[in-house]
Design a protein around this nucleic acid. Sequence first.
RNA 1: GCACCGGUGGCGAAGUGGCUAACGCGCUGGUCUGCAAAACCAGUAUUCGCGGGUUCAAUUCCCGCCCGGUGCUCCA
Length: 496
Amino acid sequence: MADHISFYDTRTREVRAFEPRDGGRVAIYVCGPTVYSRIHIGNARPFVVFSLLKRFLAHAGFEVFLVINVTDVNDKIYAAAGERSSVELAAAMTEAYRSDTDRLALGRPDAEPLASEWIEAIVEEIEALLDAGCAYAAGGDVYFRVRRDSAYGALSRRDVDAMDQGEDNDGADLKEDPLDFALWKAHKAGEDSAWDAPWGRGRPGWHIECSAMAMEYLGESFDLHGGGEDLMFPHHENEIAQSESATHRTFARHWFHVRFLLVEGRKMSKSEGNFYTLRDLLLRGYKTSAIRMLLISVPYRRQLNFTFEGLAAETVAVEKLRTFRDRIANTKWAARPDSDGVASEVAEMAREARTNFRAALADDLNTADARAPIFELVRAVNARADSGKFFAEDVLPILEALREFDRVFAVLEDHDAEWTTFTLDWAEREGKLGQAAPELLATRGVTDEKIQALVEERDQAKRRRDFKRADAIRNELAGMGILLEDSKDGTRWKRK
RNA sequence: GCACCGGUGGCGAAGUGGCUAACGCGCUGGUCUGCAAAACCAGUAUUCGCGGGUUCAAUUCCCGCCCGGUGCUCCA
């Protein structure tokens, strides 16, 4: 099943066969968040994409090891902390990042190293670069000699001589060449995290931490390295320069960049007023299943327009799949009258859908295309079920197909109600309950027992043909976010 | 200015040198239902930003234009 998987490679600018060095094993490194604030929907896209990538590769039979680092020493963190401790801010925001991404229900990376915990490895790599003559210390800083690296600019297709010389940057007077970038920054007044190093007290530059941690976890050369498109230059270009100058080996064999998203058609920014954290969306009553579905609806290399209209549409789409799954699983289907040992047509449809699903993902992780066979299967099977052509022996192939889809997409498992409770409890602690959507607040304290009692009362009213009363109860439940479905097998309800 | 990406139905979006241009949402009509909901059926792009070219054939390749987006150094 693992054959013919290919991904676009930023370095070669083409869709290339993905061939891990070590047969069945895949090592992936992704540049994660800088923890100075809660993650927003733009940060969520790479997290979702790389989690899906891992899930797909694992599903395709590879043993995947995914590293997503956390940058917890950085200028932005110092700036955001102000008078407070940057260390405490970073720790709190790291926790928030883990909690928020847990709500995305895609699992955690296999390792989530913090830059601050790998200073020793970073210092060692800088020493190696100094020894090799690729770097130099100046005024307590250490810089990398960009012009010593003839391959510099290959990833982002930039001509070193055509680059802006950046004279107004920090440390310009210490650099031999304006193109050089910092591997180590000398301690400055007001910075509350610093480590001793042979060339002076300070902290790592931004790029070196990823080189060091990637090599610590995955070795000098590994399969795939990724991040947001913004990281291509200078971050990843600099990582390649440092790493390959130190090891003389290909650092990452495949480069994978996730496109930025737009929010309501515009670039997301605080000044535009379209800046949303994951928590904001949860408080507004949107479910992470819908967020995932929306992020899946556009392939990772395309710009995605994140809108509330889109979220609403995907909420419905997720519901359609769950309703279908429940229908198949919970109905007493008749045995097939003409079971003559031939595989049923439904089993054949499920097989074909699974094949198409895998093929779409194997083709540069085309998640948008991969959704089509799922919905096609749902419609075809619903149609058969409506016309009495779905039988007990068809249940298993269908549920297995759904399980396969969900091993990658994770939208069927319903944690939504749980996350809603979690979000509201958090909002209460933070005094933000007032920001919660009214529909969300209405669901608070609505227990299954309470719902069940009302549903039974309505059923009795229906039996008396007291439809006024029955409809009143249905409306009352709707106000609590409960939807009813009458069927021959009784009334089913679900939380919206 | 330099580099790059996109413009497909009401919205989102896949895709291909030539079968009826996927899929999701929406809308209209129908079946079912006490009414709904769910589900299904039918309809909803004579056409893929505009102009030109290549080709027997282009939405798909090439050129130009218009529109939108992104990057261009220490800062996800």
